[in-house]
Simulated assay, not measured.
Amino acid sequence: MPIEITPAVMPHLVVDDGAAAIDFYVKAFGATELGRMPGPDGRLVHGAVQINGGTVMLADDYPEYCDGQSETPKALGGTPVTIHLVVPDVDAAFARAVEAGAEVVMPVEDMFWGDRYGVLRDPFGHKWSLGQPVREVSEEELQTAMQQFS
């Protein structure tokens, strides 16, 4: 009998302490731990959490399987990827993450596209944006606002 597959997109984060990352995501973002599989040396081979209904997979860094190259954001000098969370109370969610140890990259502000929005960096180097839709914005308003960036 074939296995039924549900299509999905899931970030798979490489971190320098998988067990601590799971604990951080539970505390900072209210994640639910789905599981963790430590290897014989104690490093996390695979872990998964659910945040806002979506699954985020993670594992400790294994440079020995990546051409000797560490793949954590810290080792790479940052990350070009930001994971976005839509939340019902962005100020409370942002404060909770900061209290848990996240670093503020951009404080929460009202944005021209209609969200209250801010950006954090977790202790493992990954960036997270948090947004709360607060008002509808017309296409015309967006175009006007975008002209300030040209």
Rank of each mutant, 00 (worst) to 15 (best):
K74W: 07
K74H: 13
K74Y: 09
A75P: 08
A75G: 06
L76M: 15
L76K: 10
L76S: 15
G78Q: 08
G78C: 09
T79E: 04
T79D: 03
T79P: 15
T79I: 13
P80G: 09
V81N: 08
T82S: 07
I83H: 13
I83R: 10
H84S: 10
V86P: 01
V87W: 05
V87R: 11
V87I: 06
V87K: 07
P88T: 11
D89F: 08
D91R: 15
A92W: 11
A93G: 00
A93L: 04
F94L: 00
A95T: 10
A95G: 07
R96K: 06
A97R: 04
A97K: 04
A97D: 11
V98I: 14
E99F: 11
A100T: 13
A100I: 06
G101A: 03
G101M: 06
G101W: 14
G101N: 04
A102Y: 12
E103Q: 04
E103M: 05
E103V: 13
V104A: 03
V105W: 00
V105Q: 00
M106S: 11
P107H: 02
P107R: 04
D110P: 04
D110A: 14
D110C: 11
M111A: 09
F112K: 08
W113S: 04
D115I: 05
D115A: 06
D115T: 01
R116N: 08
Y117D: 04
Y117Q: 02
Y117K: 07
G118M: 14
G118Q: 04
V119L: 13
L120M: 09
L120C: 01
L120W: 06
R121D: 05
R121S: 08
D122Q: 15
D122T: 06
P123V: 05
G125V: 09
H126Q: 06
W128A: 03
S129V: 01
S129A: 15
L130F: 11
L130Q: 02
